[in-house]
Design a protein around this nucleic acid. Structure first.
Lengths: 135, 135
DNA sequence: ATCATATATGTAATGATTACATTTAGGGAA
DNA sequence: TTCCCTAAATGTAATCATTACATATATGAT
């Protein structure tokens, strides 16, 4: 997806496509690495020397409002962000810390006693050792 | 579980049963409300006027080391703590914010492409509207 | 009772996040 | 173009959870 289509994508969701906004969206879209605000800021500051962390926060919160992006917490008190694509779980390796996206079938996680509950969102976070590190 | 058995429980896990430690453990054990550090501190300060928040943090981290307690994050950057009993999910109601423990059968969440991964821990966090609030 | 060590406490530092006020940029109207 | 209005971006300072570290207190053995 090039900058033009990203701009369209943002516009469709009622967001004016400024340069920082496009770059942040593109970063999330192309990197797919569940970055923290720090990750995004440190990587984009070269491309956008005037970027501020506040802008990164504001932009991400704007994207979340627009349901383009979602945030989640792993263990640490530090939010991670990703483009909303399809439902999946996160697996974090305890050795290399890499985060894997795990496809997640549409399992019903509510036993029948809880069928009166309405689930709007589910987050599944797995920890363990990944295949690479087990070798 | 009275204070005596809590003291034994702690001793078995190599933790000297001081008064604050017993009270904090009892709090987690009897309340079962996924408290934050602030919750614990504010509720116990009446019983233990000399309690400090640092002690609450230290004690909880000690319990986690000993695998008596685990912590988890919901949406906010604020840890919640609970006694480790059996695997279960958390459901937080978006309206009343109450957190429900949802029994969670031992579902395998890894598709077969990921069967080389070793899962040590899983956390499932559901958001939605609870039955009470739907009425 | 004394001393060594474990436990608890207080203060200050850190790091993520937000609040708020200021500056900058972009899009119309004259 | 120039002026003006509003949206966007920025910087600074505040807030909140958590940890680091140094000090004080309590406990248990000798």
């Amino acid at each position: 997806m090039d900058s033009l289509t990203i701009a369209e994508q943002l516009t469709v969701h009622g967001i004016k496509p400024s340069y920082p906004r496009i770059q942040i969206y593109k970063y999330l879209y192309t990197k797919k690495n569940h970055p923290t605000v720090d990750d995004i800021y440190n990587d984009l500051i070269e491309e956008i020397p005037t970027l501020s962390k506040t802008t990164v926060y504001n932009t991400l919160n704007l994207f979340i409002e627009a349901k383009l992006v979602k945030s989640f917490n792993l263990d640490k008190n530090e939010k991670r962000y990703e483009i909303i694509i399809h439902d999946h779980s996160h697996f974090q390796c305890e050795r290399c810390n890499k985060i894997y996206d795990i496809p997640c079938d549409d399992i019903n996680l509510l036993p029948k006693e809880y069928e009166g509950f309405k689930v709007n969102e589910k987050q599944i976070f797995l920890k363990g050792i990944c295949e690479e590190c087990l070798k």
